Computed example of a mutant assay.
Amino acid sequence: MQLAYLVNQYPAVSHSFVRREILAIEALGHSVSRFSIRAPQRDLPDARDRQEALKTATILSGNSAGLAAAAIQRLLRHPRRVLTAFRQTRSAPGRAGLVRRIAYVAEGIWLGRELERAGVQHLHAHFGTNPAAVARVAHLVSGISYSFTVHGPDEFDEPAHIDLPGKIADASFVVAISDYGRSQLCRWSKLADWHKIVVVRCGLDIDQFDQFAAENENERDLDLCTIARLAPQKGLPILIEALGSLARAGRRPNLTIIGDGPLRDELEAQARNHGVADQVRFLGARDGATVTEVLTRSKIMVLPSFAEGLPVVIMEAYACGTPVATTAIAGIPELVDRSCGWLIPPGSAEALAAAITAGLDSSIAQRQQLSAVGQARVRDLHDVRKNAKQLVGHVEAALQ
């Protein structure tokens, strides 16, 4: 099949799961054209992402004249289709919302034209926000079928505002990455559309991670690690607070944080205020090899999120043989339970400190047993090759 993918920003440090999915689909013999609404992230640390950037067409890249020309041409040839797309595209009220709405339509028209030129049979978008809006317009003006993957939590924060029900109604199928995610999509769609909502979990290249998994637990010289965007939804201030509580009790585990974001300065200041700055290393955004190295050197991966879909980093931690302490929210309990880690209520620094203490007090054999259960689950549920076949099967069914 000739397929296309659309992402709001691709490639990007946080979108490695999209890259793995695309490459797995191509390994099955299909062709995938890559499209990104915004330009790829600058200074990509991973060479694989830099290679993907060379294969990706950007819609908004000094292309305003091209977008306008494509929109006018399509409006003259197929005015009814364009007007339908405009009516069915939602955005915020007011002048700014109108401008955004017009932009979505223009982007979708341009994309639809490019899909036609490339002979694309089906378009798949990642995220139910603006990529799904643009994909929907491309479908309405070109007739090319589309689907999209919803990760959460952003799509579930304002489902009516982004017209999630309408996007689901017009799509051939919609992918949730967890059973929890499917339940939320069902909640915000018509009963008649529930059959379109399927679960295809995010996947890893299992064989690649197997070679990094530490065989000797004694070699783990790091206590804790966190791999996350430094944003409010990740709950990292709770982790710093928990470290401060442990320090006052005379326990000072080290923590390595990989990731960047708007809270970095505040988190660094918070670590100083709690007297744990010397325990916390902020490494910023790093490539996949560094993430894997830190995971395999850490005794526990900690993720105190307030809102999630189902974090890929949890899968990566288990693939590296590292047990996880995280919050019992969204799709996380579908992968993590007491047999492979520590689940805590979100927002509780006290519960997180207790989980960290329990994890670090566990014997090597106990942590190995926990990680072995997690590894088995990841191999069963999150092998990108299996999941790519599953996704391709849904596309084939949609094209019949």
Rank of each mutant, 00 (worst) to 15 (best):
R379T: 13
Q375C: 05
G309C: 09
A354G: 02
A325M: 08
A349N: 10
A388R: 11
V302K: 15
S371W: 03
A372F: 10
I314K: 02
G309L: 04
I332R: 09
L335Q: 15
I364F: 14
E293A: 14
E316T: 14
R338D: 07
G309M: 05
M301S: 15
P345W: 13
L381A: 06
V312P: 02
K386D: 06
L295K: 03
S363P: 02
G347E: 07
A328D: 13
I300V: 15
R379E: 02
L391R: 12
I314E: 07
S305W: 00
V373P: 00
K386V: 09
R385Y: 02
G331E: 05
D383M: 09
P333Q: 14
V324R: 01
M315T: 03
A319L: 03
A330Q: 01
A358M: 09
Q366D: 14
V313P: 09
G321I: 04
D361V: 12
V373M: 12
Q390F: 05
A351M: 07
E293Y: 07
L295T: 14
M315V: 02
G321K: 08
R367Q: 07
S371Y: 00
L335P: 03
Y318E: 01
S371P: 00
L352I: 14
A328Q: 09
I344K: 06
C320R: 05
S362N: 06
I332G: 10
E308N: 13
G374R: 00
R297W: 13
P346H: 07
R377A: 01
V392C: 11
E308F: 11
I344T: 13
S305G: 06
S363N: 12
I314V: 15
K389P: 00
Y318G: 10
L310N: 11
G321C: 06
I332D: 15
D361F: 14
S362T: 09
A358V: 08
I332V: 14
R379N: 03
R367A: 13
Q369F: 04
F306M: 08
S305T: 02
S362C: 08
G359A: 12
T326D: 01
V384L: 05
G393H: 05
I332K: 03
W342F: 15
A325G: 07
D361K: 11
L370Q: 08
A358S: 10
Q369A: 15
A328K: 10
Y318D: 06
A325P: 01
D337Y: 12
D361M: 13
V313M: 12
T322D: 07
L370N: 00
S348P: 04
A355D: 00
P345A: 14
M301A: 12
P323Q: 15
L360M: 12
G309I: 10
G374Y: 01
K389H: 14
V302A: 14
Y318H: 12
L303T: 00
A376S: 11
